[in-house]
Design a protein around this nucleic acid. Sequence first.
DNA 1: CTATGTGAATTTATTCACAGCA
DNA 2: TGCTGTGAATAAATTCACATAG
Lengths: 194, 194
Amino acid sequence: MPIYLRGLLFLSEQGKQSISSRNMANLLGVNSWQIRKDFSYFGGFGTRGVGYEVGKLIKQINKILKLDGVRKVALVGVGNLGLAILAYPGFRMYNFEIVAAFDTNPKKIGRKVSNITIEDASDIRTLKRRKIDLAIIAVPRDSAQETADALVEADTKGILNLAPCRITVPKKVKVITIDIAMDLARLPYYMPAS
Amino acid sequence: MPIYLRGLLFLSEQGKQSISSRNMANLLGVNSWQIRKDFSYFGGFGTRGVGYEVGKLIKQINKILKLDGVRKVALVGVGNLGLAILAYPGFRMYNFEIVAAFDTNPKKIGRKVSNITIEDASDIRTLKRRKIDLAIIAVPRDSAQETADALVEADTKGILNLAPCRITVPKKVKVITIDIAMDLARLPYYMPAS
DNA sequence: CTATGTGAATTTATTCACAGCA
DNA sequence: TGCTGTGAATAAATTCACATAG
């Protein structure tokens, strides 16, 4: 569903009012019946003979993905990658707002980056009373698990882990790990012998 | 397979010589029979009653994923994310070496970052004769497709696209797209009502 | 006795074809 | 006539159980 949402937000930006599953399919590079099946799974959103209304569909998917209403996000680790994330404007379209940043480096703590004051990582526990239950881990691999532990302690419910390793958390906490180098390592397999 | 490789490289780093599918399973958070099935698909790599030899298995998977031998990689887009990628040491373990960087910003062209001199994006075509057929796109969304076109023109065979959109390329070119914001958007769905 | 490798059973996902509604 | 929504057919992946090798 997130990929459909991204496409629909793009169409909305372009001023498109409605779209058929076929047109959407070749925009996103998937099959039209896949789109229809996926949408019908959550209940029919389209109009037969016409297609899907872009604005309406965005609202529906936002509700399904629980993206209606602004969500506050914390960032842990303000290295190169952390800085890139703080500067990146692309979270807004999903109603995310990065409202806190943590690091262990004393030279960074207290400094202001992209309107956010970097806090001491030992203050991660304050996230609980600040009602921030979503976090991005952008620390080195060997600190990732302890960071995750601190976040779990602070009642974080969802973690986007950008460190190149698995992190272990209670199963009530959802983790998605992105490992850019590992994903790059998947490419050569599909490439001709050279 | 890449996730197995990552785990095995970690074990190797820890000095482990051999491991059973069961132990590897709970290290990686998967099932032991899944691991055995996956390995047996490419031919049996283990020893019954003992397990898998870490070093040997790494070699095998490297061969399967065509990661044996250093691969040169080009980066296009030296913004915040591009800088993070240039500074990131994690590509080495898969034998990747970032050897070129491009940008369109005249202020950046010619500057040296992480031992790499930033070149003009219009020189992407030189990648062909420099035998660089793997690239990372880290440009803004609206430049992603034209960047991809230039890379295809330069005979690039694999692209890791970090821009938040689909890019269209000939089917002989393999693309993997990573959209961090979109992945973050998948988390709330799994989180309790709040 | 331990841990791999693999056929068979089960579940899940994909693809198709078309009925049904605007 | 056009496009959605969906049951049925097909394909793929997962899970299991156990024979087999060290």
